[in-house]
Amino acid sequence: MMSIDLSVPGRLQAALTVGRGEFVGLVGPNGAGKTTLLRAALGLLPASGRRELAKAAFLPQMREIAWPMPVDLVVGLVGAGPAAVERAIVRMELQPLRHRRADALSGGEQARVLIARALAQEVPLLLADEPIAGLDPAAQIAAMEVFAEKAQAGAVVASIHDLGLAARFCTRLVVLAAGRVVADGPPSVLTPDLLAGVFGIRAWFRDTEDGPVFQPLSRVATLP
């Protein structure tokens, strides 16, 4: 689905290969290079190296709907067929909003409209930059479920700050720090040492009968 080995001087030096069926959670502290990696992978900023990508849809971090367009027209922007638009609207449960003005919706509702827009593109790969930030808990879980389902027929790479949701839904976590991949694997890569070293936190993390549960507890003292 995606195979990159890219370098952006001073900001990123990372290789990543994503296969069919994977839902990759891109995690790391602020400024670790998550957005840079996604944008470089898509060719949106100049980077040297290799990048091979299946047809990809992108959800930028900046959510923008510039004009007073109704929701269904936004979802169908630039040539998605009516059937694809309908499927995306149903999948994101946007039927009650479909004739409302998209730019007048709340931030979380706009995020769902934009996710639907990306789904309506019906391409195998989805790259998303903090897609669940600002959503209510139910909408966050619903969005993660949509991505997990989408990944089954292709692949999803999403940068996520909520390590708990990432651990529960992603098939694989890629941890970035200072522009480099420092850990890559199943959610169990979030070891106490890694959490302290990369995120500066201590957390409670167990496999329970409800699935993996991750709860950050406190900051750890960082060395001066």
């Binding site: 898509l42 849809a57 992108f58 930028p60 923008e64 510039a66 922007l77 630039v78």
Partner: peptide, 10 residues
């Protein structure tokens, strides 16, 4: 309408 990055990837 959805921003420059989104447009470029469309």
């Amino acid at each position: 309408t959805l921003g420059e990055d989104a447009a470029a990837t469309m």
